[in-house]
Design a protein around this nucleic acid. Structure first.
Length: 353
RNA sequence: GCCGCUAUCGUCUAGGGGUUAGGACGGAUGGUUCUCAGCCAUCAAACCGGGGUUCGAAUCCCCGUAGCGGUACCA
């Protein structure tokens, strides 16, 4: 370019120049811990803009300089960055910078096999949302670590300490992996069940509070007993809400499916259910001592002597007390609710029938 | 379009010249229990296709195909 050209471009036409890097004419050697090493033909690369016309440097320039400045030893990133790597190496070579080790790890994909991204998947990739929903960080970490990596053909559960010890970039696979929420749920319930009742109660209290089930007067021991009764039924902490709301309020619907199956669809069957509940009401009222053993013995005595299926009586009672057909041991529920509340709910159910 | 990457059950994966191709999640079935969950037992389920190399390929090589990623004076 002559100086006349320069004047014409900058003064007359007011063009603002960019700075580009001239790509080398020898192959660019890229070493990658996951993908292995290869040589890139620089002819396939453009002479990359490294400084924009407004004077600001671009990503590939700043990034590789920053890495060098910070003495980064390993650049670990998604394979979406693969195409940037030779450009950055070329820049580093031109600048005489040290080249870090690269590891391009496979992408995490949605169930349709596409890259998970903020843009398209929103809450699915918002890590804080998982905590809000009651996932444990340990579960999340374990899950993500096993995406694209495995230690052997036996171990699925890895504590953070084990991950530190055993995780190895060399064993990371090359292909993308699908984010499978079912597996995360399994891991999460595993880690929740590792927690003792007290820790589980601590974890669950904010969830109760958030939906207004809990006021500050509730007794800690009672809460722990509820959590104890729920046992290993939590997949996420959030599950505590539907599974325990009837402990805090008697304002619940009798679930239609459960009612149809266990209370009966016909007048006749409803009548029978009503009779059973009436008998149970009397038994519960008159029982000499309100503890699990006494109540259980009394109820079994009644069902067995009257040729009533245990399951029928129990499910009828369960729906009366909780509105649903599943949940913790019914005797635990009875004790946790207390005699007065149990009698009240059974009476209400009989009236409803 | 161009450049690149990848390819084992539905999913996460182990393995890697000769195996009944292993495990886990999920699914199904049976057992246990007052239900659900759990637990126990059992079952279904895979080497992308085609050519080579080889006595023998899921495994090594080549070619297809498909999927994905990247294609900015974004990061």
């Amino acid at each position: 370019m002559t100086s006349e050209d320069l004047d014409r471009f900058s003064v007359v036409e007011e063009r603002r120049p960019t700075v580009r890097i001239k790509m080398p004419d020898t192959p660019i050697h890229v070493e990658d811990i996951v993908l292995g090493s290869r040589n890139i033909d620089p002819a396939t690369l453009e002479d990359e803009v490294i400084v924009r016309s407004n004077g600001m440097p671009n990503y590939n320039l700043t990034s590789i300089i920053d890495d060098a400045e910070m003495q980064i030893t390993h650049v670990i990133r998604g394979t979406e960055h693969l195409n940037n790597t030779p450009k950055q190496i070329a820049i580093a070579n031109a600048l005489g910078l040290e080249i870090p080790k690269f590891a391009h790890i496979p992408l995490v994909l949605d169930s349709g096999g596409r890259k998970l991204s903020k843009r398209h998947h929103g809450d699915l990739v918002a890590v804080n949302r998982y905590r809000e929903q009651g996932y444990l960080p340990e579960a999340m970490l374990n899950f993500v670590a096993r995406l694209g990596w495995s230690y052997d053909d036996k171990q699925e559960i890895f504590s953070v300490a084990e991950l530190i010890e055993k995780f190895d970039l060399e064993r990371v696979g090359k292909s993308g992996s699908v984010f499978d929420i079912k597996k995360l749920e399994w891991l999460n319930s595993h880690y929740i069940n590792q927690l003792d009742v007290s820790a589980r109660t601590d974890a669950v209290i904010p969830f109760w509070q958030e939906v207004g089930l809990l006021d500050s007067t509730e007794d800690r021991d009672w809460l722990e007993s509820i959590v104890g009764a729920v046992g290993e039924r939590l997949t996420t902490f959030q599950d505590i809400i539907p599974q325990t709301r009837y402990f805090f309020t008697d304002e619940f619907e009798y679930e239609a499916k459960a009612v149809k199956k266990w209370w009966g669809g016909s007048e006749e069957k409803r009548g029978k259910t009503s009779d059973i509940l009436t008998s149970l009401l009397q038994i519960l009222e008159e029982v000499p001592s309100f503890d699990v053993e006494t109540v259980e013995t009394a109820i079994w005595k009644y069902t067995d002597e009257n040729n009533i299926k245990r399951v029928a009586a129990m499910q009828a009672l369960r729906i009366a007390l909780t509105g649903t057909s599943f949940g913790p041991s019914l005797f635990d529920i009875v004790m946790l609710l207390g005699k007065d509340e149990v009698l009240k709910r059974v009476s209400k159910a009989i009236a409803h029938l």
